Simulated scan of single mutants.
Amino acid sequence: MTDRRLLPFSGRVAHVSLRGQIDAPAFSAGEPARIGAMLADLAPDPGARANGNGCTAPPSR
């Protein structure tokens, strides 16, 4: 099985460098892009609240 992270082919579109090597409905050269990391506080359960330092604490009673 081929590692999908290393083969620029989604099943619908392949990178132009693969033309003639695989059968794809469309080919694209693609374009450079950046991925920005999103940051969000995650609570262990819906009743928890963020305590300001990125950690969660149980709700105060």
Rank of each mutant, 00 (worst) to 15 (best):
P59W: 00
R12E: 14
R61P: 09
A29P: 14
P59R: 13
R34Y: 08
S10D: 13
L42T: 14
A43K: 08
L18Q: 11
R12L: 05
A50D: 07
R4C: 09
N51H: 12
N53D: 15
P32W: 10
A43N: 14
R61Y: 04
P59V: 01
M38Y: 07
T2K: 08
A14M: 04
L42E: 05
A57W: 01
G52I: 07
G30S: 02
L7F: 08
A29T: 03
C55Q: 13
I35R: 15
S60T: 10
R34L: 14
D45S: 15
A24M: 04
S28R: 04
L6C: 05
N51Q: 12
C55G: 09
V13M: 04
N53G: 06
G36K: 05
A50E: 12
P58Q: 08
A37R: 10
R61F: 06
A33H: 13
N51V: 07
N51C: 13
R4E: 03
G52Y: 12
A57L: 05
G20V: 04
V13D: 03
G11W: 05
L42N: 02
P44I: 10
I22F: 06
L42P: 02
D41T: 15
A50W: 09
A40W: 08
R49F: 12
R4F: 09
R4L: 10
A26P: 00
P58L: 12
P44G: 09
G36L: 04
F9K: 00
H15K: 09
N53F: 12
I35M: 11
G20D: 03
R5M: 10
V13R: 11
L6R: 13
P58C: 03
L39E: 10
T2V: 14
L18Y: 09
V16S: 11
S17W: 01
I22K: 05
S17I: 07
S28V: 02
A57G: 04
A57H: 11
T56Q: 05
V13S: 00
P46S: 14
D3A: 02
N51K: 13
V16C: 13
P44V: 14
L6F: 11
P46C: 03
M38W: 04
D23V: 07
R4H: 04
I35N: 08
A57R: 15
A40G: 09
A24R: 00
G36P: 02
M38F: 10
A29F: 05
I22G: 01
R49K: 07
A48P: 02
R12K: 14
R5G: 06
R61E: 06
L39Q: 14
G20P: 03
R12N: 02
H15N: 08
S10K: 00
V13Y: 10
I22R: 10
V16F: 03
G20C: 11
A37W: 08
G11H: 06
G30I: 00
R4V: 09
E31A: 15
G36W: 05
L7H: 06
A33K: 08
R12I: 04
R49L: 13
D45G: 14
S28K: 02
G52T: 13
A43C: 12
R49M: 14
M38L: 15
P44S: 12
D45F: 10
R5Q: 06
L18N: 08
